[in-house]
């Protein structure tokens, strides 16, 4: 008789939903509330907020896409800028799956869970999954991811409509919360000199890029600034 095949315990899907009650979940709610307000402030309807949340599921990319679309930037420039900010998702997906995937099982659940993985799910994986039996981890995370998405779609709608009834300055501050969150996250996620160089380079190059290459300002500032920062950080790490 052959050994029993490993299998996920899908009953953990429901328990995953309890993971939303956490500090990370609360911060996420505020960000998506702010995003709803921002989308309205850009002059859009509510559906682009919901659709970008459902199919991009990474706020910086969502804000970049709608900012560039509003300016009429082309498909290629937009895809390039959005795609580069999504690269950070790759290692997060790899790390979450390293903790949760069951070797020797179908890959389909991995590609499904991957869509929900962003910074919050990664943080919660590190926090909560370690004590769980391995066959419960992936279902637990999948349930959490789906539940978070439903809540955030609700937050988008709330932020969008609150903007109409709040005093204009409160609505403006709400909309500016996601950019502030991104900016602070850059510092809190920075791990070495190269990351601080990259922040400085992006900040300093952007005003020039807005003048010189208005359609590709984010992509050019990012590619040039990021590459400079990488080289500068590298020469510091490996002295000649």
């Amino acid at each position: 008789m052959s050994a029993e095949k490993p299998q996920y315990e899908w009953s953990a899907l429901w328990q995953g939903m309890t993971g939303v009650f956490s500090l990370a979940g609360l911060v996420m709610c505020a960000s998506f509330l702010g995003f709803g307000a921002l989308v309205r402030g850009m002059g859009y309807d509510v559906w682009p907020a919901l659709l970008t949340t459902a199919i991009i599921w990474a706020l910086p990319g969502q804000v970049i896409l709608l900012t560039l679309a509003e300016e009429g930037a082309g498909l290629l420039a937009t895809a390039l800028a959005v795609s580069f900010t999504a690269i950070r998702l790759l290692p997060m997906v790899t790390l979450v799956l390293a903790r949760s995937a069951l070797p020797g099982t179908s890959k389909t659940p991995l590609y499904f869970l991957a869509h929900f993985i962003a910074v919050t799910l990664w943080v919660l994986t590190e926090e909560k999954v370690k004590e769980m039996p391995r066959e419960r981890r992936l279902p637990w995370l999948t349930g959490l991811g789906c539940c978070l998405m439903v809540i955030m779609l609700g937050m988008n709608v709330a932020g969008f409509y609150l903007t109409g009834v709040l005093p204009p300055i409160v609505a403006a501050a709400l909309a500016f919360m996601s950019p502030c969150f991104f900016f602070i996250s850059l510092f809190s996620n920075a791990q070495g000199r190269a990351d601080y160089f990259a922040i400085a380079a992006g900040v300093l190059l952007l005003p020039f890029c807005m003048e010189l290459v208005p359609d590709y300002d984010l992509a050019v500032a990012g590619l040039a600034g990021g590459t400079l920062a990488y080289v500068a950080g590298r020469s510091r790490r490996v002295p000649a």
Binding site: P60, V63, I64, T67, A81, F84, T85, A86, I87, R88, L90, P91, F176, P179, F182, F183, L186, A190, A194, D195, F197, A198, I199, A200, A201, G202, V203, L205, L206, P207, C209, M210, D217, L218, A219, A221, G222, L223, A224, G225, G226, T227, A229, Y230, G233
Partner: peptide, 20 residues
């Protein structure tokens, strides 16, 4: 991935400045 990470950081920093 280290290089890609630097580019992504610079893009988000540029986005924040652009929104200001």
């Amino acid at each position: 991935f280290h290089w890609l990470g630097c580019v992504a950081t610079a893009i988000v920093a540029a986005l924040c400045v652009k929104l200001a």
